[in-house]
Nucleic acid binder design. Structure first.
Lengths: 208, 208
DNA sequence: AAAAACCCTTAACCTACATCAACGAAAATT
DNA sequence: AATTTTCGTTGATGTAGGTTAAGGGTTTTT
């Protein structure tokens, strides 16, 4: 299904406005010249995703790294028993991708799916390498972003092995208040590493 | 306890040889000039650690990033109940540090302890910033290393939430054969996210 | 408007691993 | 060499969260 870039439903703002959102994000983290802003803006393509549409899919090569400008994606893993595990949610101004597959051209171990109609700026590995050559300051940006992702995942991992589901739930609500309005409850259960039935039971208990 | 740099027991090789080990590691990943090699070698300090000695400690600021040239460290987290959880082991040619604390000067959420007498090349955040300024190509190296760490942790996390202890144990042995000769069994249990008693029982079962 | 798909809840039962306690062997420390 | 600490094992018992099954509500699709 090929949707026009001009479709006002999918793109309530124009392309330049979305790209400025990315430029803003970058400028807050490193210094970039007007010339570099232009190069960056040109390197990314604007794409829209309908609810349930995939950004990339497990088993296929993930040749996309996305900056979410609007909407929400869930990034998840399907295990050998067919169960899904949410690695993280990508909201506005977050990145979504599978670093491993993106950098090695090996099949991705993750899928990313829109939880609602969403818009993202995307780039492929070749364009990204070119971009890094043209704007070397971005090496620093992506190092810092990756470090941040690593520290977040590290905390999450340690919480997962050291705390029970109730504690992990409380931590999530504390860190992301309002997430229960953005994401269906069974997806939250998946993020917490438990079944929807268990989360339902847990929340009932917590009301006492 | 101040140990002399000349102590032949602690340093079977000389300082230059250890630094060359780091330079070799770097040169295999990015291009560096002879001049840059010298700058890098000068930025790091050689330090020795007796068995059980800490490289850095949870609750204190981690102002150390270490490249292990010999020996083994365990990097672990002590939870609110006082239980220890191994995040990873750092062997020869691995890095050990707490990125979050190192970059933010906040108290570390991790400890690193030598499992045997070990030797490492260490750097502090200020020296590292200087080094990155003098050798910008290292931005790329550390971006790539951090990406690698992130993908490894991601796999580990997803395995932890999707597989049981037996499957995680088999995966560890497959990926790191010989680890059982390097690390005591209760540390392996901690890495797997189970108690030593459970691992012992599990291995007995597996023999059938 | 009807049908289908999706989502949440509850209940009975089950299992992987934790907890607690005790023992002997090995290794480190004196 | 003696003492202490560390390490691995085994057994009895407990529990968080998984499993299975079923019901009803809500949203999406036709």
């Amino acid at each position: 299904m090929c949707t026009s870039v001009k479709n006002p439903y999918l793109y309530p703002m124009n392309e330049t406005a979305y790209k400025n959102q990315l430029i803003e994000y970058i400028a807050q983290r490193i210094d970039i010249s007007p010339k570099e802003r232009e190069i960056i803006a040109n390197a990314y393509s604007l794409k829209s995703y309908k609810k349930k549409q995939f950004l990339f899919e497990q088993g296929h090569i993930c040749d996309i790294e996305a900056f979410v400008v609007s909407g929400t994606f869930r990034i998840f893993y399907v295990d050998t028993k067919g169960l899904e595990h949410v690695l993280y949610f990508a909201f506005k101004d977050w990145w979504a991708g599978d670093i491993a597959s993106f950098n090695s051209s090996e099949p991705s171990g993750l899928s990313a799916q829109a939880l609602e109609n969403s818009i993202a700026l995307v780039i492929d590995p070749i364009k990204k390498e070119e971009l890094l050559k043209q704007v070397p300051a971005l090496e620093r940006l992506f190092r810092i972003i990756t470090q941040k992702h690593l520290t977040v995942l590290q905390k999450r991992f340690l919480l997962t092995v050291s705390a029970n589901a109730v504690e992990r739930y409380n931590e999530l609500i504390k860190r992301s208040p309002g997430i229960e309005q953005l994401v269906p409850q069974h997806q939250i259960a998946s993020y917490l590493g438990i079944l929807p039935e268990s989360l339902s039971r847990m929340k009932k208990q917590l009301l006492k």
